[in-house]
Design a protein around this nucleic acid. Structure first.
Lengths: 233, 233
DNA sequence: AAGTGGTCTAGACCACTGC
DNA sequence: CAGTGGTCTAGACCACTTT
């Protein structure tokens, strides 16, 4: 009954988590209102609010005004994945990074790409094909379309020195990003590029980014077997 | 100069984002302290704090006490992926969910599994193999090890009625989770189970969860070609 | 109508760290 | 040591929704 004062939002979060895992509060249960919890735990309501908001963001609680806070019946947990620059990702493994631009041309946007970026079909885009290497071994194969209107200066950039990936990260911040991860069997061409077996299972990342509603770039990255994307929660 | 009062943390966040994308504040730049921004924007410091904390969590800003807040030189953007119950994921596509327990036995933990879960090698675990189906077509193949000591009641649970995935979500909340995503070529057995081509590229999710330091379960889920994991940022 | 969470404020103290 | 972000408080108003 007599709780110590938990005067830190992490402390409150831990206590709430304890009550959930001890099944004092079971899935679907309504838990006390912020004000009641604050009084019980001896802290300010805003401290309780921060703790509960954090747990709701993690998917453990459902909160609605007036309706109160409930322990999620079917927690949809959320994990964060980090999206570093490829060069960083390679260097983090201790390997030396290098990239090679395989193709570069200006071309009207194919319909599916234009649709993804929210542009008129036929808009002039910069199409790039790049191979990223770690210690001279293939790390990822990249196919990219860039909207030059949304990335001023990219036409003049030396993309052989700085990859488009890195150039865009430094020069074209984005406000929205769509990510799709999947597995695909390598085509013969891609298998050769990646020095992988025919039909090798590739880890494919497709990313589309926008700045304030304007499509910046759409990219497809294919990594050979062995690639692992990790995250903690 | 004369800013409107931005008396909402989303407004402050938008304004900071604007200044970053307009390159008023460039990568590496030190931005004004919270107190200065609050004065300039006409709001409380805690409002600015919340906005900047959010942008730092998204990877756009680097913040350190005393050192101040800088625009990240190489933003490591973070996206959140949702981890729903498989049944929910299937039902969200409009399909009917079903699962079949292919194997179930109690077995001493193999060394790698024990190591992952932080248990003594040889601890008695429940080993399960399950096929998840959407409209009677294979959706994912699951291999799971459960530590019964951390999931009391699972031995008695009817896992044919409620999959271990779902049972655990309802009965064993976790505090820590390790996730690894990769692509693997199907073995002949797995290809047959998933009704996929030999060597098909499978999207593999490996998940290990703990409650307060005690390993609960380790699971490997393999999804046939066509599976896509999406997220927005 | 009333009760809930969402947010903002003004002020305060503290932890950390670069000077 | 001084300046920064991190956090807590007490109070307030509001938006939303359920009753």
């Amino acid at each position: 009954m007599s709780e110590e004062a938990l005067a830190s939002w992490r402390g409150v979060r831990a206590e709430v988590l304890r009550r959930i895992s001890a099944r004092i509060w079971r899935p679907g249960d309504l838990i006390p209102a912020e004000a009641a919890l604050a009084a019980e735990l001896g802290c300010a309501r805003s401290t309780v609010n921060r703790a509960l908001r954090d747990l709701a963001a993690a998917g453990l609680l459902d909160r609605r005004r007036r309706a109160g806070t409930r322990v999620a019946r079917e927690p949809v947990r959320r994990a964060t994945v980090e999206i570093p620059i490829l060069r960083r990702e390679v260097e983090a493994t201790g390997a030396r990074y290098r990239h090679a631009v395989l193709a570069r041309r200006e071309t009207p946007a194919p319909a599916p790409i234009a649709a993804r970026l929210g542009l008129e079909a036929g808009t002039a885009l910069l199409a790039l094909e790049t191979l990223h290497l770690a210690d001279n071994r293939p790390w990822a194969h990249e196919r990219r379309w860039v909207n030059p209107a949304a990335a001023p200066g990219i036409r003049e950039a030396d993309l052989a020195a700085t990859s488009a990936n890195e150039w865009l990260v430094h020069h074209a911040p984005y406000t929205a990003c769509d990510l799709v991860f999947s597995a695909e069997n390598a085509t013969p061409e891609e298998a050769a590029l990646l020095e992988a077996a025919p039909d090798a299972a590739l880890f494919v990342t497709e990313r589309t980014t926008w700045m304030a509603g304007t499509g910046i770039t759409h990219v497809r990255l294919a990594a050979p077997p062995g690639y692992r994307m990790r995250t903690r929660l």
